[in-house]
Simulated assay, not measured.
Amino acid sequence: MEPIAGTALYPLHRCKTIYLVRHAQGIHNVAGEKDFNAYMSQDLFDAQLTPLGWSQVDSLREHVKKSGLAKKIELVITSPLLRTMQTAVGVFGDENYTDGVSAPPLMVENAGHSGRPAVSSLNCPPFLAVETCREHLGVHPCDKRRSITEYRPLFPAIDFSLIENDEDVLWEPDVREANESVALRGYGQGKRRR
């Protein structure tokens, strides 16, 4: 539904539209639906997308392209978790990467054992990883990220410069973040550790 001229609280030409996209299905989603205790499994550390998840990414990518939205996106912000970066580059990245192109790929071939081709960073908006753009922190290994040193070679064109710590200092093994803390972090008022 398009807003009617003159009804906005702030002039529309001075506004930005923000689209929020949740990551596609990850291996932790499947395991957790079968048995909630599976979320405690170290095998789900920094969970990657499932084949169905990649199918969801492909469908959303087609929708974004056909709707013309792809041409309007100015910046993609992603959390620094494997499944969220896979989703972001799969939906908003350019076509398959070709060796010899001067721009680095957004994602290298088979990143996170995806079986997917590399994704080009040409003709797409910049990608920025933001540490605080994460869901609940703590306890579940699927919600702990890898080091930024491990991510950089997998996602060469994602900008990790705003992430202050190589290791995940926000995730704690024995404290699950409360909903109130998640909300405060979303407002930029959460506690910064270390």
Rank of each mutant, 00 (worst) to 15 (best):
2 E>N: 11
3 P>L: 08
5 A>L: 07
6 G>H: 09
7 T>V: 13
9 L>E: 12
17 T>S: 11
22 R>C: 11
24 A>T: 11
24 A>Q: 08
27 I>D: 00
29 N>D: 11
29 N>L: 01
30 V>K: 12
31 A>T: 12
32 G>C: 13
33 E>R: 10
34 K>G: 14
36 F>K: 02
36 F>T: 03
38 A>F: 04
41 S>R: 04
41 S>N: 14
44 L>E: 04
44 L>R: 08
44 L>D: 09
47 A>Q: 01
49 L>W: 05
52 L>S: 14
54 W>K: 15
55 S>H: 12
56 Q>W: 03
64 V>D: 00
69 L>D: 04
72 K>L: 13
72 K>A: 15
75 L>W: 04
76 V>N: 08
77 I>E: 10
79 S>D: 02
79 S>I: 02
80 P>N: 13
81 L>H: 09
87 T>M: 09
88 A>M: 06
91 V>W: 01
91 V>D: 02
93 G>R: 10
93 G>L: 05
95 E>M: 03
98 T>G: 10
99 D>M: 05
99 D>Q: 08
100 G>N: 10
101 V>R: 13
113 H>T: 11
115 G>Y: 06
116 R>D: 00
116 R>C: 05
116 R>I: 03
117 P>G: 06
120 S>R: 10
121 S>I: 02
124 C>Q: 02
125 P>V: 02
128 L>M: 07
128 L>E: 03
132 T>R: 10
132 T>G: 06
133 C>E: 09
134 R>I: 08
135 E>V: 05
141 P>S: 07
143 D>Y: 02
145 R>L: 01
150 E>C: 03
152 R>S: 08
154 L>D: 04
155 F>K: 05
157 A>L: 05
159 D>Q: 08
159 D>E: 02
159 D>I: 00
162 L>F: 07
163 I>Y: 02
164 E>C: 11
169 V>N: 04
172 E>S: 12
173 P>E: 01
174 D>T: 12
178 A>E: 12
182 V>T: 11
183 A>K: 07
191 K>F: 10
